[in-house]
């Protein structure tokens, strides 16, 4: 049986989502996508700066039509702005997937969970496939599930920090308790960390900074592709026994076998 991830009715065979921000050269993006094997790609919507010396290129020129676009509501500081951005992106022909990212904290760039729930609720009702980016919190994830999120995307560490899976224990709880795909977004700095997330049972990971800022982004994208596949396969294979520390000195079940004691 093929291992596919289904989100919003789409079957995905790759569990690596790629973010397209911060690339030194946008021309790298098509090769990055190609080598990583990714199928879902995030993009953002920005006001045009008429004072810029050079017209910025539309990122879509570098993303083949076969990829699923996931517009990101980055820049939104509250639910209303995120909703607005999502609607515009859909009108712009980006499909009906949206990553909700509401950030009002400009120091650590941590998501505003409360506003994110509200935006998710409204957009899910409008037929969007909503993937909210949140701080990993069980009650928040349950609410997201209730309001129609298609997945939950907890952060592993603050955006762009490349600090790895700092919130691992919290993410593990989400995996245990939430019936939606759990996709780690933000914080993953190395392929080994992506593999770790997948071994834990995450449904997918979203990687951006770690690839975009690598010495060789295309090679790093390929490395992430392998890591995500390896981690996933390890999860499916079921890790072997980790030996308990040397068995305790006093047996706990001996009483069962002391003739008189048992009947």
């Amino acid at each position: 049986m093929a291992d596919v991830l289904v989100i919003g009715g789409r079957k995905l065979s790759s569990r690596l989502f790629i973010g397209t921000g911060k690339f030194p050269d946008k021309k790298l993006i098509s090769a990055v996508l190609e080598k990583s094997g990714a199928e879902v790609v995030t993009v953002a919507l920005r006001r045009i700066d008429f004072n810029a010396e050079e017209e910025e290129e539309n990122i879509l020129n570098h993303i083949d039509e076969r990829y699923i676009l996931m517009p990101n509501t980055s820049g939104a500081r509250n639910a209303a702005e995120a909703i607005e951005i999502a609607r515009i992106a859909r009108e712009a022909g980006c499909g009906n997937w949206v990553k909700i990212e509401v950030i009002s904290d400009q120091k650590y760039l941590l998501p505003d969970n409360q506003e994110t729930i509200e935006a998710t609720r409204v957009l899910a009702q409008e037929g969007f496939v909503v993937l909210p980016y949140v701080s990993p919190d069980l009650m928040v994830a349950k609410k997201l599930q209730d309001v129609g999120a298609a997945a939950v995307m907890p952060l592993g560490a603050p955006i762009g920090s490349n600090r790895g899976l700092r919130t691992k224990e919290m993410i593990r709880i989400l995996i245990d308790q939430i019936d939606l795909p759990i996709i780690v977004d933000a914080g993953i700095g190395r392929p080994s960390e992506a593999a770790e997330a997948m071994e834990m049972g995450c449904a997918a990971v979203l990687v951006n900074t770690a690839i975009a800022t690598a010495g060789d982004p295309v090679a790093m994208a390929e490395a992430f592709g392998w890591a995500v596949r390896a981690g996933r396969q390890a999860f499916l294979a079921g890790p072997g026994r980790v030996l308990e520390e040397a068995s305790a000195s006093s047996p706990l079940t001996g009483f069962l076998f002391e003739g008189a004691g048992s009947r």
């Binding site: 308990e244 068995s247 305790a248 047996p251 706990l252 079940t253 069962l256």
Partner: peptide, 11 residues
């Protein structure tokens, strides 16, 4: 495997 189960359950 009761003893091994017991050690882990105890812990």
């Amino acid at each position: 495997h009761l003893e091994a189960m017991a050690q882990k359950a105890h812990r």
